[in-house]
Nucleic acid binder design. Structure first.
Length: 740
DNA sequence: AGAACGGGGCTTTTT
DNA sequence: GCCCCGTTCT
């Protein structure tokens, strides 16, 4: 038999060999999903004579796209040239530019990232006199993005209350027209606008869809509605659509991902063939049993169960600790023990639910001098100096880009201060032009003094001068901008360790411009800016030293480690319950469960779970009971270290410890609450009751008097719903309340 | 123009 | 605890 099928199990072969038409592959964790996709592509090219450029493979991240390209290069040496592998966003940007004329947009549009979008939105809201306290820009921004994801107008959303909707729709309209005028697209637009165009224009759809003969989409459970519609449109001519994913690993509902897209694939394509990959090549049998024990308690999932030929392996450890510091200590001790046994540090991952948990662990690792790396955190392209240089370049390419222009107008300072900028914005708003044009119009406007006009002119001349050189090789242009604008001089003058680091970062960016120039034929500034905006982090990982990896469970998706430690396994932490939330939304809980499933299935040989009885987080103390995701584990596969809840308690999953909310130190008048002596108010005895029931009259320092309408014991301190005298009902942690 | 202060908020994160 | 934002102070 031929190499493409070597080492593939039966369902994998089935997925690779399946002929034309729609195909959905449910690929459980560690079941060889990427192998199937790459081998299928290789099969199409080598056995079925499909031209590489007629195949489109879509992923979510650049990293995934890169890996796929790499593995294909091995499978089809030299033969995959022309194959289109890319993220949804990169692919859409390319198509929008290519068909800009037919779609009616400018070809060299700027792409606004979330920060740019937010900046523009805030300005719009200020101009429209919208109170940003009542309508947080973050929320409005989410509303706008969500609408695009659902292929709707904000005004047509029926999940928004009337008044909020009116305001949001008004803001959205103005935001859209300003963005248009600035010649920019936000992330949501890239997909939304292309789908609109493809659905409206039959000609265009046929052309674009006809170009590809086969479409493969990875991580299909993470697609949102607009992406689904895009895929429909792209496959409309031929229907050769392969989607691969795992509904159990869908953990991005909060950003629009819809599991129904994969679960209901057959509703769109009734003839779709289904393949399930259930053999796992990653984890020990015990780990798989643990993962199954957690995920199988979710309803509404595609039935499947991972199995393995591997041995049972080590038991799963569950470690109970006093607090987060002790937890960190035990994590580090575990790392040291494993290291002493000869296990390399890069085989160990420490996972947590939220980033805020990392600090304590880091401190401990630092203290013990154990090398570690943190995945996530500040991204290279999010650094201020990087964004500044990119903003200069964007303005050179597109002076109408107000967001970028305002960013750099007075950086380094050139005497164009707050007053001048706000006058410019006024003038721009009055005359309906962008800031660049307003700078010109300032000549004939009484509000601008001679001196100010001169400064504005100097800036415009500077930019125009640079524009003339915009065809220089990219790295030369980058260096020129840094010199001519005085940006580099500003950093040099600062002469601090931070400014040195910034210069280094800029040098790195200029270096990457050179690298881009070298590997791209006819590299243009537009192309470079697009790549950079659609890319999250620089992948230059220094691998010279083995390190422990720290990251959130979300970041760990797709990765695997011999040893995985998951920290913070407490009710309220994992499953996480937001402040002001009762924590009982079944959809949210189901997603937390999937997240736990993702966490557990990262482990190959060893899974260690830890929880803390109390945890200081967000500067408050939470008292935790072991997470339901720990209590769900099969007894014969787990070893409890330290506190182990009784069988009865585990069965009921009731909170083990309850504080008495009334028995806490009174805040002295006029001063903030003193740091609490936690031990003094927590009642560890099991039977202690809450003393707070439905109907209890309570008092809250901010909201005043009210009456308890609901108590939720799932977590400690319990969440309590209170109806206050002004008629508002709020969900509050009971330890924030006093009797009254 | 830039530091210094105070308030409020706070999951997860890609593109 | 920490970060972001806006405002005020110097």
């Amino acid at each position: 038999m031929w190499r493409v099928l070597d080492g593939l199990n039966e369902p994998q072969q089935e997925a690779v060999l399946y002929g034309d038409g729609p195909l959905v592959v449910f690929a459980g964790a560690g079941s060889g999903k990427t192998r199937v996709i790459t081998h299928r592509v290789a099969h199409l090219i080598r056995e079925r004579d499909v031209a590489p450029w007629r195949i489109l493979a879509v992923t979510f991240t650049n990293k995934a796209a890169g890996e796929m390209r790499e593995r294909l290069a091995q499978l089809v040496p030299g033969g995959s040239r022309g194959l289109v592998v890319g993220t949804f966003h990169a692919m859409c940007a390319r198509l929008l530019r290519k068909h800009s004329e037919a779609i009616g947009i400018r070809r060299d549009f700027t792409i606004y990232d979330d920060a740019d979008q937010q900046a523009l939105l805030k300005r719009v809201m200020r101009d429209l006199d919208v109170d940003t306290k009542r309508f947080p820009p973050r929320q409005i921004s989410q509303t706008i993005q969500r609408a695009k994801q659902e292929m709707q107008e904000v005004a047509d959303r029926d999940d928004l209350s009337g008044y909020y909707k009116d305001v949001a729709a008004k803001v959205a309209d103005e935001y859209e027209s300003r963005k248009e005028r600035a010649g920019a697209m936000d992330f949501g637009d890239l997909i939304y606008r292309l789908v609109l165009a493809l659905e409206k224009d039959d000609e265009l759809r046929k052309e674009v869809s006809g170009r590809f003969r086969h479409i493969l989409v990875d991580e299909f459970q993470d697609t949102n509605h607009s992406q689904l519609r895009l895929v429909h449109a792209l496959a409309s001519v031929h229907g050769n659509l392969t989607v691969v994913g795992d509904d159990d690993q869908s953990i991005y509902r909060w950003r629009g991902a819809d599991r129904r897209n994969i679960l209901d694939f057959r509703k769109s394509y009734p003839s779709a063939h289904i393949v399930k990959l259930e053999q796992n090549y990653r984890s020990s049998a015990r780990i798989l049993r643990a993962a199954h024990a957690v995920i199988s308690r979710n309803t509404d999932r595609e039935p499947k169960e991972l199995w393995t030929e591997k041995a049972a392996g080590e038991r799963i450890f569950v470690v109970g600790t006093e607090d987060e510091r002790q937890e960190a200590q035990l994590v580090v001790r575990g790392v040291e023990e494993l290291r002493a046994k000869g296990e390399p540090l890069d085989s160990i991952a420490v996972l947590y639910r939220i980033n805020a948990q990392s600090r304590v662990i880091e401190e401990r690792l630092l203290a013990e001098d154990i090398p570690y790396r943190i995945v996530g955190g500040v991204r290279f392209y999010d650094r201020a100096e990087i964004k500044d240089l990119l903003a200069y370049l964007r303005v050179l390419m597109n002076p109408a880009d107000d967001v970028s222009l305002l960013r750099i107008l007075n950086k380094p300072t050139r005497g164009i201060g707050k007053t001048t900028i706000s006058r410019l914005l006024d003038l721009a708003a009055e005359t309906g032009v962008g800031v660049w044009d307003a700078m010109e119009a300032a000549h004939k406007d009484g509000r601008f003094s001679k001196g100010v006009v001169r400064k504005l002119d100097a800036f415009r001349r500077l930019m125009e001068k640079l524009q003339e050189r915009a065809t220089l090789p990219l790295p030369d242009l980058g260096g020129l901008v840094l010199d001519e604008t005085g940006y580099l001089a500003m950093l040099k003058a600062e002469n601090t360790p931070e400014s040195d680091a910034r210069q280094q970062n800029l040098a790195e960016l200029v270096g990457s411009m050179g690298e881009f120039d070298a590997r791209t034929e006819n590299a243009t500034l537009t192309q470079f800016l697009e790549e950079v905006t659609l890319q999250s982090a620089i992948d230059a990982e220094d691998m010279e030293e083995a390190r422990v990896t720290l990251m959130t469970v979300h970041s760990a998706k797709g990765l695997e480690f011999p040893t995985v430690m998951v920290t913070g396994m407490e009710e309220g932490m994992f499953p996480f319950v937001r402040q002001g939330n009762m924590g009982e939304d079944p959809e949210e809980l189901a997603e937390e469960r999937r997240l736990a499933y993702v966490a557990y299935t990262r482990a190959e040989d060893r899974l260690i779970l830890s929880y803390a009885r109390m945890r200081r987080i967000f500067n408050r103390v939470e008292v935790g009971t072991p997470s339901r995701f720990v209590l769900d584990l099969p007894e014969e596969d787990t070893t409890w270290i330290g506190d182990r809840p009784s069988r009865a308690r585990r069965a009921s999953a009731a909170p083990a410890y309850r504080p008495d909310p009334w028995d806490m130190p009174q805040a002295p008048p006029k001063r903030k609450r003193p740091p609490r002596e936690v031990d003094s108010y927590i009642d560890y005895s099991e039977g202690s009751d809450l003393g707070i029931v439905e109907g209890t009259r309570v008092w809250h320092p901010k909201f005043g008097h009210g009456r308890v309408t609901e108590v939720r014991h799932g977590m400690v301190p319990p969440r309590v719903a209170v109806r206050f005298e002004d008629g508002r009902t709020k969900v509050i942690q009971s330890d924030r309340l006093e009797p009254g």
